[in-house]
Amino acid sequence: MRDARAWVEHLRAHLPVALSGKDPEGVHQVRVAGRRLRVYLDLLGWRVLRDDLRRLVQGAGRVRDLEVVLAGPWALPQGFRRFLEGELHLAREALSPLLASPWTAALLGALEVLPPLEEGQALRALGRLEAKAKRRWKALSLNPSPEALHAYRRALRRVRYAKEFLGLPSRREKILQEALGNLQDLEVLLGLLEAFLSQGADREVLALKEALLVEREKNMAEALERLGLA
């Protein structure tokens, strides 16, 4: 069984990289560490620090989503690209003061003193996370929508992280989570397209949206087949 120290160190190490904005990996790893530490709180059964980590993950998430879309394989129309770059600039402007604030230092200090896991309690918490993933899977099988798939993927990710803290095998969850990841990137891009189009119609962007909706349909069918739900 592992304690939280390695991921707190991971978070501490990547905060300066995220702050500098020079390497997208910095923000990505801050988000990953934040998510993993939230699962550690689940295993501890703690309520405190959960909102702090959510704030950190959400702040990093906006920057990360935009960076992924801008670096992705899609041919983005110029106007839309400029819009995304503007949004990224705003998101970084919001994230930097947060990461440099006394609050982040306090959060790191608090995470560093988290107690070790108690095995029985942690295993019961894992059971709850697995039960939630099963409920999400059932909801997905009844209503195979992108939203239900995303909810299932998130629940699966929590189970994977929990198992890794407990030193249990998590290969199945990891493979499934990665397989469903591309679809989520597509969902993020579609959301950003919607935000751009709400400012005014753009023929090129509308054409991209149509193409992406077709791709989403195809990816969704593949994902459901992989999950045995086709």
């Binding site: 703690w46 309520r47 405190v48 620090l49 959960r50 909102d51 702090d52 704030r55 006394p102 609050w103 230092a105 306090a106 959060l107 200090g109 608090a110």
Partner: peptide, 17 residues
């Protein structure tokens, strides 16, 4: 704070102050 959180209906956060 964790024990006190039984009474919590909103958020919590940490402060170095």
């Amino acid at each position: 704070a964790e024990i006190l959180a039984d009474l919590l209906e909103g958020e919590s956060w940490v402060s170095s102050h």
